[in-house]
């Protein structure tokens, strides 16, 4: 059995509230971060809705877990990529509720994703 530390990608493709995917992805990301695993976060498709500004999930009885995204930097989760095309398709401005989000073209997004050894999709 080989033991090697992998570059992990967490790929978010779902909107935050009606499914458990976004919260599940967040929990996994923070765990990898706390184990100092090299981990990148990717947001594409409806996953980009997790990043947009001015959300108030408490109105619909959902705990504001998006607030926890601001902890990414303390867990050394500094590679946060969002697909530019997904934003454009949804008429979303590149305005996010956390700092340090990198807006990349779909080509770059794909290239970056390919550079990881383990990918989990949520």
């Amino acid at each position: 059995m080989t033991s090697n530390s992998k570059k992990v990608a967490i790929l978010n493709t779902k909107a935050p509230f009606s499914q458990t995917a976004a919260k599940a992805a967040l929990d996994v990301a923070l765990i990898y971060g706390s184990f100092e695993q090299e981990t990148s976060l990717f947001f594409q498709g409806d996953g980009v809705y997790q990043l947009i500004d001015k959300q108030q999930p408490d109105i619909i009885g959902t705990k504001d877990f998006l607030k926890t995204f601001s902890a990414f930097e303390f867990y050394d989760l500094e590679k946060i990529y969002v697909c530019q095309q997904s934003l454009i398709e949804r008429n979303l401005p590149p305005e996010f509720h956390i700092e340090g989000v990198m807006v990349v073209s779909p080509e770059e997004f794909s290239l970056l994703l390919h550079q990881h050894n383990a990918v989990l999709t949520f």
Binding site: T13, Q44, G45, D46, C83, P106, F109, S110, L113, H114
Partner: peptide
């Protein structure tokens, strides 16, 4: 499921 189409933009 439109998430499936995201595969296409990530296909090399």
């Amino acid at each position: 499921n439109n998430s499936i189409n995201l595969c296409l933009t990530n296909l090399s």
